[in-house]
Write a protein that binds this DNA or RNA. Structure first.
Lengths: 340, 340
DNA sequence: CGCTGGCACTCAACTGACGGGAGTGCCAAC
DNA sequence: GTTGGCACTCCCGTCAGTTGAGTGCCAGCG
């Protein structure tokens, strides 16, 4: 049976262990937290908590360490988000308001998040798939080389170069530009790609070839999910603070190289809610010693991507959760503004 | 006096130490390399090499370790570049030929370089300043919001949003587009920014305001050296292979977060030549245990940026040098092709 | 019935002693 | 100039002894 005081004890254990990185014993516990009971009582409670699987003893006559299950209970029941300080809020908003384009927003947020949490931060670039086409621009660099520029509602800009078999007149290009934009402007990207498919049949026959070329590149760019897989990472150096290099740091460093892995870590967080994945709860057994705090972001209810932090299971959950949520909100707001 | 055989001994010491990560003794040396002399002779040579400062003994009765000065001599006099294998060459060219845009080229090269060298690789994005303007495009998203797109010869695309005080007609915008492109197309970016300055005075008075707004944003984008500071990093996980965490790995991890620091590391390599900076030769005392192998890249003689690898002084110099040079050549070629 | 102080017990971590081994420097001989 | 021999140095792993933090259990108390 786990009553209120035992929960208090668990909370104290988690907090102390996160702070000291060392197994925590009954005596130190009552000293550092005003629990109002004797060490012996705490020991009894700890015995129960251990039996229930919330804490664990590295060896007899050592202090206790929270298990994944213990962290889980801590996060679910005990953690109240640390409110962000006024200074932090201001830092977030001034930094992000100064961002000039999408890349800049992403870079700055990931950096910010890593500094706020002193963890490794990950921000996924907004996915193409959920965004709409704002504009398509065609620029003739030479008569047979056209640069196709695709501007999306999220602020993302994709450009591709098209080589034409035959030169194209400026007026024809203008016509094509109008046609393409009519077909796609404001349309969700998947639908836009579909709409473009019919285009070559609708133009004058002598234009069909060039249209086909442009449309081909454009649909390719639209359905290119390569950019969906892009993430920004920052704060790797924070890993240096952690002790057990082989169990905690090395596997994480390796995972950070694999952006696909990162996306899976972030992505499984489902949609928009702030989620915490602790140790073995995640999809990779090598990362059994690392936790993920992540959330989706995007204007209103639209989920454009995810961001979060990863670190050893022994991390400051309340602080990380608050920072992740705060940054996600600001990023969402910025993306929304750019979209008006 | 340092004769040929002593140089051989030094080479052998460097190679063995790089391979084994342990101080190397006279006996092991003659066994692993066919030096044709006895350990005792090698010991005499080592005593001289130590006196001259090329190698160093961690403590009496330990093997020898190369000093920075020793590595320097090794690189200058002894290292012949390991030729890339056919498979490696093919891997480089197929990977980089598949790149779709500038971002992609940079990302792929940095990844490639880290895999080839098993080190941390760094690639600087091509600087704006040396490139010329290929095209400027103005797109009216709404009558008072114009997206300005700046396309540079390197393939870089910058976009900015301009809010106008008054609506602008499509015909006026077209006129402005022509004027801007006439002033800047093919011109080096610094000169282009200057040329734009005069533009507001040359247009019809009622257009001056909107022109000023567009030109302002454009010159800002051109003189924005923020993007000059962008670098891509890959292969951090390779650091995990190295032993001495505190001296070698941690400072480097921290430096990797500071892109400015990285640029300085790469950048001081001067212009185009393949340069090797060993330990204390670099600008940062905290990075006394790390070396940099870097080179410039860019089509023909034009220096657009630098790329290279960083790692502990105990690294495979010949291999790294060869890989860095090979990747730089391929990147240069790709950039050149895109530019025709 | 739950809390508490006391007490014996356990076990990692530190300490110091010790021997093995790799490596050196020096010297006499070739 | 090179080599084999030899005494010497010093790191490193091992082992026993000690310390101390922390536990589990139990009897007593409110």
């Amino acid at each position: 049976m786990v009553d209120d005081r035992k929960l208090d004890v668990l909370r104290a254990i988690v907090e102390d262990y996160v702070a000291t990185e060392e197994p925590v014993g009954s005596k130190a516990l009552v000293e550092r937290h005003g629990l109002g009971v004797s060490p012996a009582t705490v020991r009894n409670d700890m015995a129960v908590l251990e039996e229930e699987g919330y804490i664990h003893q590295p060896h007899t006559s050592a202090g206790r360490v929270p298990t994944d299950k213990g962290y889980r209970l801590f996060v679910d029941k005990l953690a109240t988000l640390k409110p962000m300080s006024m200074a932090e809020r201001r830092a977030i908003s001034t930094l992000l308001d100064g961002a000039v384009d999408l890349d800049d927003v992403v870079q700055k947020s990931v950096r910010l998040l890593s500094q706020l949490t002193r963890q490794v931060a990950i921000v996924q670039y907004p996915t193409l798939s959920r965004s709409t086409v704002r504009h398509v621009e065609l620029v003739a660099l030479t008569p047979t080389r056209v640069m196709v520029i695709l501007i999306l509602s999220t602020g993302r800009v994709e450009q591709r170069l098209v080589e034409l078999d035959a030169p194209i007149a400026d007026t024809d290009l203008a016509e094509l530009r109008v046609a393409v934009n009519q077909a796609t402007a404001g349309v969700q990207i998947a639908a836009a790609a579909a709409a473009l498919g019919a285009l070559p049949d609708d133009v004058r026959p002598e234009q069909a070839d060039s249209t086909r070329a442009v449309v081909g590149v454009l649909t390719e760019a639209m359905s290119d999910h390569r950019s969906d897989e892009r993430v920004a990472v920052s704060g790797t150096a924070n890993l240096a603070r952690y002790g057990d290099f082989d169990t905690a740091v090395r596997p994480l460093l390796e995972a950070l190289e694999e952006h696909v892995v990162l996306l899976k870590l972030l992505g499984e967080s489902g949609v928009d809610a702030l989620t915490v994945r602790i140790g073995h709860e995640g999809p990779y057994s090598e990362l059994a010693a690392t936790s993920v705090v992540a959330t989706g972001y995007g204007p209103q209810e639209l989920h454009l991507g995810s961001l979060g932090v990863v670190g050893p299971t022994r991390m400051d959950y309340p602080g990380s959760m608050a920072a992740v949520r705060a940054v996600a909100r600001y990023v969402s707001r910025i993306l929304d503004e750019g979209n008006q």
